[in-house]
Design a protein around this nucleic acid. Structure first.
Length: 279
DNA sequence: GTGAGGCCTTCAGC
DNA sequence: AGCTGAAGGCCTC
């Protein structure tokens, strides 16, 4: 099945820019799991080829269209960002890289795992969680696992998470799972809340500070004005726009949201991807 | 209100 | 070989 896309598209950059950690590439095909579905896709020109097998094509098409946010005209996003070359250069270079609409729960746990870590280790942590605690799912002879539910995490317990080498993040993940399972925090309702309100809810979870919360708002909840500030972004923004002044992350976040506007999150991700790949 | 130190584990660099 | 520091942050004192 072919899904054609109206605006720019770059599948490789989209899947391997550090916003999501479960995609694997073999023989030019990208294999991933979206909710409980194994997906096999590749890019052909400006469209996505989807490998289907006994699956409802209409359903898969809708699912991917939502996941990649294909209704968003990304060229219009570029137009609305500032014209300075610091943001326009990586846009030119990785034109078509999209911000996904991931499963909030998986995204949350992924970014709790990201603290003092790196993409390679985060990916291994997440995959180990799925292999040990998820359900088997498959596409033809290709097998993967679904992302474990909060219940699965609670049942496993913090000691088991430590055995999976999640380190000090184990307690955070376990406690967050409990708060979500109990209903104390309801992720679904964040879709309809404002940036400030949803941010406030997310940072009430253990292991979730301003940076992690902004990642979840951006990569799962499609709040495109979210602006995660890690050490790299902090350095990049202060050096290029703020005279190299040493400023706290919150200050850089607020300045950037004001400067870049409604699509600040897109600016963030392009700048981040640019500096991450430049060595 | 702000800042330094500790935290699991891995991996690169001496 | 074995040590040391850093790695996409958060929490606590």
């Amino acid at each position: 099945m072919i899904i054609s896309i109206k605006s720019s598209f770059d599948l490789e950059s989209t899947l391997f820019s550090g916003q999501v950690f479960r995609w694997q590439k073999f023989d030019g095909w990208y294999f991933g799991v979206i909710f409980d579905h194994v997906v096999k896709i590749k890019q052909i020109d400006n469209s996505i080829e989807v490998y289907c097998e006994n699956t409802d094509k209409f359903f898969v098409s809708r699912m991917l269209s939502k996941y990649f946010n294909l209704d968003l005209d990304i060229d219009e996003v570029y137009n609305q960002l500032p014209k300075d070359e610091f943001v326009q250069n990586p846009i030119k270079k990785y034109k078509g890289m999209r911000i996904l609409k991931q499963d909030p729960w998986e995204c949350l746990i992924s970014f709790i795992c990201s603290s003092v870590s790196n993409i390679k280790r985060i990916s291994k942590n997440i995959e180990d969680l799925c292999i040990n605690l998820g359900n088997n799912i498959h596409l033809g002879s290709y097998s993967r696992q679904s992302f474990p539910t909060p219940q699965d995490i609670i049942y496993a317990g913090p000691d088991f998470l430590r055995e999976l080498k999640l380190g000090f993040r184990s307690e955070y993940i376990y406690q967050s799972a409990k708060m979500i399972e109990s209903g104390e925090v309801n992720l679904e309702e964040l879709y309809s809340l404002s940036y400030d309100e949803s941010l406030q809810t997310l940072v009430s979870l253990p292991g979730v500070g301003d940076k992690v919360a902004n990642c979840v708002l951006l990569f799962a909840f499609n709040k495109l004005d979210a602006f995660p500030v890690d050490v790299w972004i902090n350095r990049a923004i202060t050096r290029n726009y703020l005279k190299g002044e040493k400023l706290p992350p919150l200050h850089v976040r607020n300045w950037s949201r004001n400067y870049f506007g409604n699509y600040a999150g897109y600016a963030n991700h392009y700048i981040f991807h640019g500096i991450r790949l430049q060595d």
